[in-house]
Design a protein around this nucleic acid. Structure first.
Lengths: 239, 239
DNA sequence: GTGCGAGTATTGTCTGTCAATCAGCAGATT
DNA sequence: AATCTGCTGATTGACAGACAATACTCGCAC
């Protein structure tokens, strides 16, 4: 029998998972800003599903750290403090450094090839200053890194970590000056990986994250002096 | 005003959280062995709460990796494969190494004191070969380590990681020969921390985990040759 | 202006219901 | 005899409705 690709797209599984994905996307895209309260009934109307599915999806997002639920007050999009940002970046540097090292050690053929493509795609997007393409390229790059390291636990943790960090980058977009540095840093990382230099890969990953952290936390602290409370009132009427 | 500790224990909050804690405890204590299916209605009877709370609690445990839910088949206690065990220990070594380093760098007074007490408690428990005391001592030790590192994200991740690893230690209890080594390794770690030697603290933490990993994975692989499927049938009637 | 109390909005939880799906079993077929 | 087929029971996925408990808001009295 020829190996036909008869994948039937296996229904996105359950409704709950669909809701979960939609909400997660809405949050990381900034359509629900940090601090925004998520009222169950509103979400029911927005999504067209019952409270059951909404509530269970929220639990998942809570576990991922994207939403914060205080009992009897309901869920809201997590607001990240400077201290938490510091902690998040510390762990991210640790894990990405490890991922880089393992990627360099294992050097899986397919992912090495993908890495080259992704880096070039990122460089192109950076040159064109195309925000959408940039985000897509960066996402692809990270996906390759996480596949390449061969550690499912790291992959999952980095994914949620990345989402959480995106939360604090929403309000303040990364500086344009940082972009050129980013490209060169990423080239360095990729070079270390393809040559199989684990130490260099880890070091360059950590350096990359550390620099990103400095910028992000600086902006965040500057912001936190003017605490722009979103949705202080009951309804924020974003429509 | 003297800083009285007027904490009012703030009611365990919601029923869902209680259920969650109960189930988590039951799983990590091994009362639900890996592979055991968790049928909603049975859990309802066991806990005396409705399906709503059960289901939401399960979502949380799923996110923590303690239970695995396959759509339309329901939740069961996660079975850890040797490969996953390797990944888990790798990440654990990474995070605990970091925690040790940061602990040594910060040296918070209260936690340093607690560390000394915990290490002695662990040594005593090991000498007496008291299983219950041993587990309690180890738990206290880890709690101190995670408080001492001053990173809430690391603390949370290590906690869930620790729970997941406990899953694979259930069937096979750690070798008694390993215990003496453990004690000495832990003394080494504590010594490095109190003297503020970050490099040594990280290295000794990693070594400790690496050794534990070798033992655990060896036992696991040996087991997986005789795949003792729990609850292959519909009901396992553990009563 | 401050403190108190009523009212309302929202969550937490239960019950019951129904469709969709899965696992095992009996029967039919080659 | 072995395999395929269809049925049946068990279980989950999802909804609606309901009700108590709690938190937030606002107006009122002082």
């Amino acid at each position: 029998m020829p190996d036909l690709d008869l994948h039937v797209e296996r229904h996105p599984a359950t409704l709950r998972l669909l809701v979960e994905d939609k909400l997660r996307a809405a949050i990381v895209e900034g359509r629900f800003p940090p601090g925004q309260r998520l009222i169950e009934r509103e979400l029911c109307e927005l999504t067209g599903v019952g409270r059951t599915s909404i509530r269970e999806a929220i639990r998942q997002l809570e576990a991922e750290g994207l939403v914060t639920v205080v009992p009897h007050r309901g869920p809201s999009v997590t607001v990240i403090t400077p201290g938490e940002a510091r902690d998040l970046y510390a762990v991210r540097g640790l894990l990405e450094g490890y991922a880089g090292r393992e990627f360099a050690r294992l050097r899986p053929e397919a992912e090495i090839a993908a890495l080259g493509r992704d880096v070039e795609g990122f460089a192109r997007a950076a040159a064109n200053a195309d925000r959408r393409a940039l985000i897509a390229a960066k996402t692809a790059l990270y996906a390759t890194l996480m596949r390449g390291c061969g550690n499912a636990v790291v992959r999952q943790m980095l994914t949620t970590l990345h989402n959480r960090i995106t939360l604090l980058r929403l309000t303040s977009m990364s500086q344009p000056g940082r972009l050129k540095d980013s490209v060169s840093e990423i080239r360095t990382i990729a070079a270390a990986i393809v040559t199989g230099d684990g130490d260099a890969a880890e070091a360059s990953c950590r350096l990359h994250i550390a620099r990103a952290a400095v910028v992000a936390i600086a902006v965040l602290e500057q912001q936190s002096n003017v605490p722009t409370q979103v949705s202080r009132g009951r309804h924020s009427k974003t429509e």
